[in-house]
Each structure stands twice: as C-alpha cells, then as structure tokens.
C-alpha cells in the first residue's frame, strides 16, 4: 500500500455504527453484490482500468467486491487497519465518474460512494497531503 495513505494515528472503530450503516442499505447493496455475475464485462468501461494497462485491480467489480463486499462479509466487524486498506480502493482507484457499464445493471458508483461514507463516519478519508500528491495517469 502507498505509505502516504496510512499516516493517521490509529483510532478505534465504532463497529456498531458501521454495522448500522451497512444494515440500513443492505436491501439494495447486498442484492447488487449478490447479482454480480463476476463476468468482468465492466472492466473496459472504466478509464482507470484502461489507463493502468488493464490491471484487474481497477476493474469496477473488483473494487466493490474488495471494499463493500468485504465489509458485508465481515458484518461490519472491522478494525482501523482494514478500513485504511480499503481506503485506497474507494478514493484512489475510483473517481466516481459514473461511466462504468454493467449489462446486468449493477450500479458500481453508488456502492463505492456508500463505502466512502462508511469510512468517513469512522474518520478514515484521504488526508490533505495525499490526494494532490497522487498522479493517476
């Protein structure tokens, strides 16, 4: 992981709050996660995937499976380290441009945005010195 992404001091995660947030939108989010055919057809619609020489880590489905998907699988029982691990996925690896196309109709940006708000609720978000130092392309 990029070292500049983990410069904050360790904090305690309010797992109850995380769980509450996950539960509130699980009807939509868990269905999206469950109906993903894991087919990778969304890959080429993401410019970040294309610009990173088709690195699978930038595939829209990869990003939600490994951020929001993991949060649901762990039922919100996560620690500060974990939230910081997925921070890069939802802020750096996706810019929420909304261009990803899924034939089944899974709306990836809303899932990434939701993950961001969960992280933000726990004080995990890009620090001032991080984002501007990032070069995407």
């Amino acid at each position: 992981m990029d070292p500049s992404f983990s410069t904050q001091t360790i904090q305690k995660v309010d797992t109850k709050k995380v769980k509450e947030m996950l539960n509130r939108r699980k009807g939509k989010m868990k269905r999206f996660l469950s109906h993903c055919a894991h087919c990778s057809l969304c890959a080429e619609s993401c410019f970040l995937y294309m610009k990173h020489r088709k690195d699978p880590h930038y595939m829209p489905s990869y990003k939600v499976i490994n951020s929001l998907g993991k949060l649901y699988r762990k039922r919100g029982k996560v620690d500060w380290k974990f939230l910081n691990e997925i921070k890069g996925i939802v802020w750096r690896n996706c810019v929420l441009c909304g261009r990803c196309y899924c034939p089944i109709g899974i709306h990836v940006p809303s899932m990434i945005a939701f993950t961001r708000s969960i992280l933000r609720s726990q004080g995990v978000y890009p620090q001032r010195n991080e984002i501007s130092a990032e070069s995407w392309l």
Partner: peptide
C-alpha cells in the same frame, strides 16, 4: 483470463 480470475471464487 486474468481479469475474470481476479474476481472468481469457488462460489462462481
């Protein structure tokens, strides 16, 4: 296919 493999589990 690398990109399919990246999101594949036994479940698939």
């Amino acid at each position: 296919l690398a990109r399919v493999k990246a999101i594949t589990t036994a479940y698939d």
